[in-house]
Design a protein around this nucleic acid. Structure first.
Length: 816
RNA sequence: GCCCGGGUGGCGGAAUUGGUAGACGCAGCGGACUUAAAAUCCGCUGUCCGAAAGGACGUGCGGGUUCGAGUCCCGCCCUGGGCACCA
């Protein structure tokens, strides 16, 4: 007998019904509790991949579950449409980035619709559209007026052969990915946003975000990196300005035996003028890419500059070195080195034979040898003159007061966080709305002239931005004085677009403001879901932008995302699915073969959302088999005709047991989906319940009634995960209203009641027997019953019982 | 190098607050149905000893705390993510 489950037909029918009833299109309704559910929007790279399907399904399950809780749910979708892959495709295929992008969006939108996600498509946002990015340009000009943006030199990777700036991703083993030339660091002027102005607030609010995973909050805390230290100057004979350094360990100040400056530091440059060896070394230092991971792992190298600074406490001469691990632009571009109490300084000192001095000893009186290894713990000061015997805190205060009194230093709170460089020397991005005028300097484009539209019909060669070759784009006049002027040809980092799209979904058609009153209704996002790889950058930039918009009066909210779920990657054979590795599985093939519900079910069943998911073709088949079994069970049941209402008093034990299992499952899945987001165990519980239904084999009136209840419950609780088959089965089970409009089922506490419970009995913590006791039994009776068990008795073997531990509902442990 | 995760049967995973390790599924083995195969259904399935009852061992490695540790603490190993221009 063949199964009647035809996914294609079932899914088309359900999707047609949702489209016709427009049930996912929502408008603001002040009388209802809103639930705003957003997924990190996809980059339109061509086709949907499994990573997309996973994150979108997770979010869709949450949205549909909340809808069944009676919430007014908005789930929108959009496209993070600017970025490098469009430029690469343009080079490879000769298609303009815009056309490639729009084609991809059309293809991927069709795929999303085939997967049955509950989106309000009327709110679709596409970041490469002028009606979107004009507001980003507008906000930038507002930030300019407020002094929240500035232009400064910053380091980029420079490919000397292709004469172009490279992204870190385009640098492979220190070489340009196309030219294979050794990449150099180069400084060019770039625009920065002052995210550091918000560092304190971004840090402190993390303590009040219970809906975010602790790991993400910790990463952000460490990234912002607030530290308390002292900034102080070392005089350099012959220099007007002292050499300023920052340290969090002023207690080790007397242990400073050398100082190091960056290759780009003015003192290094000056020394290079008269010393070709130093000039050569500085040149060599520039031949590394700009990534921090590179900097931290390269071999530490340095050269003496031949000059010394004066120690601010002892007056001793401290030699100055130039070192490849110090970078201009991080702090002051100079560091004081304490090899006795810092691991990196120790390594460097040992390599170059620089002195190592102990100035801290362990507080517990233990002995250490700083010639063997740096001692980096806090302790008590020694060899530090008047500071000897002080603890870290005492020395910190005393030394800070000394410098504050002499005006040579001060206490300073520092942040590791740096301002956000938003300039990109690329074509396919939002034009930075600035005009350079010889007389007026950098002038923001007036609001009336926005947007600065990116020309889409371009010839794209791949080396440098085509905008630089388009006078019709960059030739303009100064908005202030009217003189000839030149438009900025750099574009924004694409993280700028993704820092506020979640707010724009609320009012995607607003054409006289970035956000309007509709944003007040929907913000903040109640549930935000996306990859863990965005734990720091994207999520921190979005939190920053939310505050900038708040301070602009566009929203009252400070935090954009109340609850955050970070999902793991999709792997195959232990590696991330990628075209490069050739281990991708095309979702479309699977949808065509098994239907969207099977793909959605497997995604939710195979692993908890936060963990990596190992792809398995056999597992997909297993999910399909389950849906077919489910269909057959309903088909067989409804073939027996209508059922009557359950009369709880007249159920036999087996019927009671199925009913208890039904309500236990409802309770478990409510918690699994609603609180724990453990979709995998929710699916497992539903499978168990279906197995219990299939085992009952009872066609009495009450048997069929409890089966009707069990099957209807499975349909409801699985409907967020497999909404199409749920729609069909719900109708087959004789319900009039569509399942999409049903409320989440309620647990009947009476059905959960149980007369006997099973406890395990341990002897010295090892499992030795099982007993069945009355659910209300007294502790004394439970122990007596446990001791009476034959195997337990055998292990006690007449020995004295030291104590017994009874954990209600779980176990008895007899300690002998 | 630094920050944050993860490591449990042949495989994906479960064990939610320190309380029955291995739910559910996959794969495998045995059986039913079939002329046969596929599909479907039923049973078994951590390792070792044992006819069975039952026992010993077992959650990356080495220690520790506890009546009891996959779970907590200390020290390692391996592995994934991020490190500011991939998105």
């Amino acid at each position: 007998m063949s199964s009647g489950y035809d996914p294609e037909q079932v899914e088309r029918a359900a999707q047609a019904q949702w489209a016709e009833s427009r049930c996912f299109e929502v408008s603001e309704d002040a009388d209802r509790e809103k639930f705003y559910c957003v997924t990190m929007f996809p980059y339109p790279s061509g086709k949907l991949h499994m990573g997309h399907v996973r994150v979108l399904t997770i979010s869709d399950v949450i949205a549909r579950f909340q809808r069944m809780q009676g919430k007014h749910v908005l789930q929108p979708m959009g496209w993070d449409a600017f970025g490098m892959p469009a430029e690469n495709a343009a080079i490879q295929r000769g298609i303009p980035p815009a056309r490639w992008t729009y084609n991809n969006i059309d293809d991927m939108r069709d795929q999303l619709k085939r997967l049955g996600y509950a989106y309000d498509w009327t709110r679709e946002v596409t970041t490469c559209r002028p009606e979107y990015y004009r507001w980003e340009q507008w906000l930038f000009t507002r930030m300019f007026e407020k002094g929240l943006v500035y232009r400064q030199n910053a380091v980029v990777n420079w490919d000397p052969v292709d004469q172009t700036v490279l992204a870190n991703e385009q640098v492979i083993d220190g070489r340009g990915w196309r030219s294979d030339a050794l990449v150099e660091r180069r400084e060019i002027p770039q625009w920065f946003m002052k995210i550091t102005d918000y560092a304190d607030e971004l840090l402190e609010e993390l303590d009040h975000m219970p809906g975010w995973p602790d790991s993400v909050k910790t990463m952000q805390r460490n990234w912002i990196g607030r530290s308390e230290g002292i900034e102080l100057g070392f005089d350099v004979p012959g220099e007007e300005e002292p050499l300023t350094v920052y340290t969090t360990r002023p207690d080790t100040l007397m242990g400073v035996t050398y100082m190091a400056v960056a290759a780009e530091h003015p003192l290094a440059r000056k020394a290079a003028e008269s010393n070709p060896e130093i000039a050569k070394f500085i040149e060599e230092c520039r031949k590394t890419d700009a990534a921090e991971a590179t900097l931290e792992t390269i071999e530490k190298k340095g050269m003496p500059l031949g000059i010394s600074a004066e120690h601010p406490l002892s007056g001793d001469a401290v030699p100055l070195w130039v070192a490849n691990f110090v970078l201009m632009g991080y702090g002051t571009g100079a560091v004081m080195a304490v090899p006795g109490h810092d691991a990196r300084d120790w390594e460097f000192a040992t390599k170059y034979g620089l002195p190592i001095v102990q100035v801290i000893e362990p507080a517990d009186g233990g002995t250490i040898d700083v010639t063997e290894a740096a001692y980096v713990e806090y302790g008590v000061l020694v060899n530090s003159g008047g500071y000897d015997g002080m603890t870290f805190d005492e020395a910190f205060d005393a030394i800070a007061e000394h410098f504050e009194a002499t005006g040579r230093g001060r206490r300073k709170v520092n942040f590791r966080l740096r301002d956000w460089g938003v300039s990109r020397q690329r074509y396919w991005g939002t034009p930075i709305p600035i005009i350079y005028c010889d007389r007026c300097g950098a002038v923001p484009v007036p609001e009336a002239d926005l947007p600065v539209v990116l020309p889409e019909d371009v010839e794209f060669k791949g080396v440098g931005s085509p905008l630089r070759e388009m006078p019709e784009f960059f030739e303009t006049s100064c908005p202030r004085c009217g003189d000839e002027a030149r438009r900025e040809t750099d574009t924004f980092d694409t993280f700028v677009e993704s820092s506020w799209y979640f707010a724009r979904y609320a009012c995607p058609d607003a054409d006289d403001a970035m956000l309007d009153e509709r944003a007040h209704y929907w913000l903040p996002v109640d549930q935000y879901t996306g990859g863990i790889e965005h734990a720091i950058l994207h999520l921190l930039y979005a939190r920053f932008f939310q505050r900038v918009m708040r301070d602009e009066g566009l929203t009252e909210e400070s935090e954009p995302f109340t609850n955050l779920l970070t999902q793991g990657m999709v792997l195959k054979n232990g590696a991330k699915m990628s075209k490069a590795k050739g281990n991708t599985v095309d979702p479309q093939t699977l949808i065509d073969e098994y239907g969207a519900d099977t793909v959605r079910l497997f995604m939710m069943f195979a692993a908890p959302p936060e963990q990596a998911l190992e792809w398995s073709d056999e597992g997909v088949q297993g999910s399909f088999r389950f849906l077919r079994r489910f269909w057959s069970a309903v088909e067989a049941h409804v073939g027996g005709g209508d059922t009557v209402a359950i009369d709880a008093g007249s159920l036999d034990d087996a019927q009671k047991e199925l009913r208890r299992k039904t309500h236990q499952t409802i309770a478990k899945i409510s918690d699994d989906i609603g609180r724990r987001h453990a979709f995998n165990t929710a699916v497992a519980a539903a499978m168990e319940l279906l197995n219990a239904v299939n085992r009952l084999d009872d066609d009495t009136e009450m048997g069929r009634a409890v089966i009707q209840e069990a099957l209807s419950s499975i349909v409801l609780i699985l409907s967020p995960i497999v909404p199409h088959i749920a729609d069909a089965l719900w109708e087959m089970l004789g319900h009039d209203e569509p399942v999409i409009d049903q409320r989440w089922p309620e647990v009947d506490d009476v059905a959960l009641e149980q007369e006997l419970v099973e406890l395990v009995v341990q002897v010295n913590g090892k499992l030795r027997g099982r007993i069945s006791v009355d659910a209300e039994a007294e502790e004394g009776d439970i122990v007596a019953s446990a001791l009476a068990d034959a195997n337990v008795e055998r292990f006690i073997d007449g020995k004295a019982i030291r104590k017994t531990i009874v954990v209600p509902g779980r176990l008895v442990n007899v300690v002998i």
